[in-house]
């Protein structure tokens, strides 16, 4: 049986909850070993690897990113930003028994040092089915403002 939209949404919602509640170490285990976390500048790029992105994280860089956020040694994450994200507008683009591609919208509000900031994004998940349940093979976060000036983001989108 193909992966259903309901299964995908349940998994994506779990990821969102982990990120808002700072469960970054647990979050790492949601990815495949070759998985990528990508925040592109150019949402239309064919091959993000050949382009400059805001983030193009393999397993090592994701681990580094989490270590940095939890270390207490990064002044921009000390104290950390609080975030609330809401995902919706899910659409299954492709699905079969072992993998699927889901697109959705993400609205995120950030609060840090008395300042509220907002980031909207189109997010695409490439999920794969493993013995250990669904995993992220690719998460691509296309910020609505990706080609404009951002403010710094010391958390995980």
């Amino acid at each position: 049986m193909s992966i259903t939209l309901a299964d995908a949404i349940e998994f994506i919602t779990l990821e969102a909850d982990m990120l808002d509640y700072g469960q970054f170490k647990e979050w790492l285990s949601l990815y495949t070993p070759d998985g990528l976390y990508i925040v592109p500048i150019d949402p239309d790029a064919d091959d993000y690897q050949k382009k400059l992105n805001y983030a193009y994280d393999n397993a090592e860089m994701r681990q580094n990113r989490v270590t940095r956020l939890l270390s207490g040694r990064a002044i921009s994450a000390m104290p950390p930003a609080h975030t609330v994200r809401l995902l919706g507008r899910y659409r299954m683009l492709e699905t079969d028994e072992t993998k699927c591609i889901v697109r959705c919208a993400q609205m995120l509000t950030e609060m840090r040092q008395g300042r509220e900031r907002y980031y909207s994004a189109n997010v695409t998940f490439h999920l794969v089915k493993t013995d250990d349940g669904l995993k992220i093979d690719r998460k691509i976060i296309c910020l609505l403002t990706s080609t404009e000036a951002l403010t710094t983001v010391s958390y995980i989108l």
């Binding site: 805001y54 403010t151 710094t152 010391s154």
Partner: peptide
């Protein structure tokens, strides 16, 4: 570098 880098956000904070 950049707003999601491991250096720039800390510079910006300072």
């Amino acid at each position: 570098q950049g707003p999601l880098g491991f250096g720039t956000p800390d510079d910006s904070e300072a």
